[in-house]
Nucleic acid binder design. Structure first.
Length: 800
DNA sequence: TCCGCACAATTTTTT
DNA sequence: ATTGTGCGGA
């Protein structure tokens, strides 16, 4: 990796300096000896990478394939800009999507050039950078500099109020749906007045835009913004205040963007505005790894870069330092089925290694068993668990592996899932703190006024909010007024009185106590911890732990205010990454990571590519799914092992599934297809050969399902789709394939045979309870209690 | 106000 | 299967 530390003084000068005259003239390595010939990081770069680092002027698009050293280029470029004196740290804008990426970029830059990197004020996420700018000029867009950044939960609650205020049916028009529409509009930089009519009609018969406008108005009143606003408000600030825009355009001499393929329209406009003056915009990305279209990313941004920024230099990073040739060839061939791409040819100098393994299994359980066994074997061969990862399309697929790993006592870690700061208990705690910070934080008040239960139910809160809105005062103020009158009675009155008094009490204590002690006091006195302790739910123990962890992390900040300010944007306290364990994560979460051994299970039609994605977005989604497959394959350094099952339990129902079309798109020469009938290497017509190998496993016998038996998987998938339209479906209409009396049973027994014995009582999802009347391999004849004798496949049945 | 039951939904995820 | 949500009754 980076062998070079920050001792610039040692750099030798050389007449073969790569710098131009003008660069050399300007070179001012920040107080260190000027004109270092070869900067140390340069020695570490290949030709293309070097070009990407040295082309400092004008628009630059660095197309960096998987594993081609993208971050190295970015950080070297930062170092280059600083050390050659082309820019002061504060004159560089460097944006990423995640805090993690920003942190990594900062750290690695500092490793190259030392503490100079600390001065990079404008290295951050799109959102944090926008927030910095916006706080500076809040008044110009109708906000106070202290504006609060809403999280999704607050946002939904606010939207709920807005929808209610319009007298709409919450059930038909959910806040969640409106939130996703508004998010989509904001991603495309559409303010309420710009929402196209047809779009507005997606919600409540044309009220979409109006509700959006109402929501925005409420946000302003509450002095809040949501994540989308951070970008949008900044854009409108720039558009409406030429002097402000000019100030930033002048300041940012150089702009760097990471993961450009993930930018949405708003981010594109934002960048275009800022880059206008110096035009030194360098974007780094890979169109083939664009997998976030569903949340607004526009692959077009990267595809159109040359057009948008005329005269752009395009640098292709194609030398891969991660994977073996077989893996690269498989991935490259697969992705070549995509039409919408710029095109790259990855190559490597690595030795061949093993081919990509493709294996068909009887069902999901067998798949988990196989993968677990592989991992054990890997481990026995002297490797670590942590070198392996299981990459799934959707998180429900993780459970099978967890169960298996648990059984075999294979250590594992699930990456992703609910984030620490998104857990209910953490947000409840935050709501308390926010309310203590400022009493007019109505959203915080609403969240915890009855958590734990204080006898202040929905009716009381509704009445309170109505009155507060009418009077135009915060909820806490109105609550005090209300308590002075006889409006509230009984439990609600006692509860609210106590709550308000506690708030006052905590606010006083806030002045004397260190904030961590205050936090503990609040959690105790509010009854929150007692509530969790009393909760019999097994999760409440870990919730209490989370609260302890919360208080601990607060200790890292000087004040409560500093802490709250920080968490609004930087919500990714990494949970402890400890120990050696197999990692289980989604393909999305795997982007940017790598492992020697990568498992890619569940390559089945409707699972991967995901049926839902295809239904919603058709071909566009198919290409994105394919990119996801590409991302998955390119995570592997030494070994990539794809697998698919013939039968899978999805949402509690058994379904017979077909191999993914992506399997047919893999190139023959680089893939080994294996089934438990033997070991196959394809010479000709690989798909067929491969298919035949899987045939016995993956083709459920029965009417209609033999139709495409001789053809590749995709053709059969099409046949199955056609059948489905006619109502004859294995996945939905029936609880599983039925074996007709007459049907030739082509399938032989799968993994474990004769699981069932004569006379056993079983349960079938579709037909209910019955007794086993006859067993023939995996084919069972069952006498069902309700529907008589039927023939079914054993995997669709379980012991009753 | 709270609790329990019926019912529906169920990809991916960052800020 | 699982999990969250909304409604009706105690």
């Amino acid at each position: 990796m980076f062998a070079y530390r920050s001792n610039l003084a040692n750099h030798t000068m050389s007449s073969e300096s790569p710098l131009t005259i003008s660069q050399r003239a300007m070179a001012q390595p920040l107080g260190l000896s000027a004109v270092a010939g070869e900067f140390p990081w340069m020695l570490d770069l290949n030709e293309r990478q070097r070009q990407a680092v040295e082309t400092l002027d004008g628009p630059v698009l660095v197309l960096s394939g998987a594993g081609t050293g993208k971050t190295k280029v970015l950080t070297s470029r930062l170092a280059q800009l600083l050390v050659t004196g082309r820019a002061k740290p504060w004159e560089i804008l460097a944006v990423t999507f995640t805090n993690k990426a920003a942190r990594e970029m900062r750290e690695r830059t500092q490793r190259l050039i030392g503490p100079v990197g600390e001065g990079l004020r404008w290295l951050g996420t799109f959102h944090s950078t926008s927030a910095m700018i916006l706080r500076q000029h809040a008044e110009l867009v109708g906000l106070k500099p202290s504006f609060t950044i809403l999280d999704t939960d607050d946002q939904i609650r606010l939207l709920k109020q807005v929808i209610e205020s319009e007298g709409l049916d919450q059930k038909r028009w959910t806040p969640r749906f409106l939130a996703s529409l508004i998010e989509g509009w904001k991603n495309r930089a559409l303010t309420p007045d710009k929402v196209p009519t047809d779009q507005a009609f997606l919600f409540a018969n044309g009220k979409g835009a109006k509700l959006y406008a109402l929501y925005q108005a409420r946000l302003k009143i509450l002095n809040c913004v949501d994540f989308g606003d951070l970008l949008l408000e900044t854009i409108s600030l720039f558009l409406n205040q030429a002097d402000v825009l000019n100030q930033y355009q002048t300041r940012f001499k150089f702009i760097l963007v990471d993961e450009y393929q993930d930018t949405n329209v708003a981010q594109y406009l934002w960048l275009r505005l800022l880059a206008q003056q110096h035009k030194n915009l360098c974007v780094v990305g890979d169109d083939d790894q664009s997998i976030y279209g569903w949340r607004g990313a526009e692959v077009d941004n990267i595809l159109r870069f040359e057009h948008d920024f005329p005269g752009a230099t395009i640098v292709r990073l194609e030398r891969n330092y991660r994977s073996t040739p077989h893996i690269l060839a498989a991935a490259s061939h697969l992705i070549s089925s995509n039409k919408n791409r710029l095109g790259k040819t990855l190559w490597t100098k690595m030795p061949d290694g093993e081919r990509v393994l493709v294996r068909g299994l009887w069902d999901g359980e067998a798949e988990a068993r196989l993968i677990a066994d592989d991992i054990e074997q890997w481990r026995r061969s002297g490797r670590r668990y942590g070198e392996g990862a299981v990459l799934v399309r959707a998180s429900w697929q993780m459970r099978a592996f967890e169960e298996r790993f648990l059984m075999l006592q294979i250590p594992y870690r699930v990456i992703g899932g609910p984030r620490f700061f998104e857990r209910a208990e953490i947000r409840d705690a935050h709501a308390y703190f926010r309310l203590v910070r400022s009493l007019d934080d109505d959203l915080a008040f609403e969240r915890i006024v009855n958590v734990p239960k204080r006898g202040i139910g929905d009716t009381s809160v509704q009445r309170l909010s109505a009155a507060a809105r009418l009077a135009g005062v915060p909820l806490v103020t109105m609550a005090k007024d209300l308590l002075g009158s006889d409006e509230l009675k009984g439990q609600a009155r006692t509860g609210l009185t106590r709550f308000i008094n506690q708030l006052e009490h905590w606010r006083k204590k806030a002045l004397e106590l260190p904030h961590t002690e205050l936090a503990e006091m609040i959690l105790d006195e509010s009854g929150y911890t007692d509530m969790l302790k009393a909760d019999k739910n097994p999760q409440s123990v870990s919730r209490l732990d989370n609260l302890k962890e919360l208080v601990r992390s607060m200790g890292l900040f000087d004040t409560l205010a500093a802490y709250l300010e920080h968490i609004e944007l930087v919500m990714d306290l990494d949970r402890a990454e400890a120990g050696d364990g197999v990692q289980i994560l989604t393909l999305h979460a795997a982007k940017g990571l790598e492992w020697p051994l990568v498992f890619l299970p569940g390559w089945e039609e409707e699972v991967f590519p995901s049926k839902r994605a295809l239904d919603e977005k058709g071909d566009k989604a198919l290409e994105e799914e394919r990119r996801l497959a590409y991302v998955g394959l390119t995570r592997a350094r030494e070994s990539a092992r794809i697998s698919f099952a013939a039968n899978r339990q999805i949402y509690g129902r058994w379904a017979s599934v077909l191999p993914s079309r992506f399997i047919d798109e893999l190139p023959d020469g680089h893939v080994d297809a294996v089934s438990d009938t033997g070991y196959f290497t394809q010479a000709i017509g690989a798909a067929e050969a491969r298919f035949n190998a899987y045939g016995p496993l993956s083709t459920p016998p029965g009417d209609g399902f033999n139709a495409g038996y001789e053809s590749p998987g995709w053709k059969r998938a099409q046949a199955a789709h056609a059948l489905k339209k006619g109502g004859l479906t294995a996945a939905k209409g029936f609880g599983g394939p039925i074996v007709d009396g007459e049907a030739k049973l082509v399938a032989k027994t799968g993994a474990g045979d004769a699981k069932y014995k004569l006379g056993q009582r079983i349960f079938h999802d579709k037909f209910g309870y019955g007794l086993v009347a006859h067993v023939e391999g995996s084919k069972l004849t069952i006498a069902f209690e309700k529907s008589g004798e039927k023939k079914v496949i054993d995997s669709f049945v379980r012991l009753a």
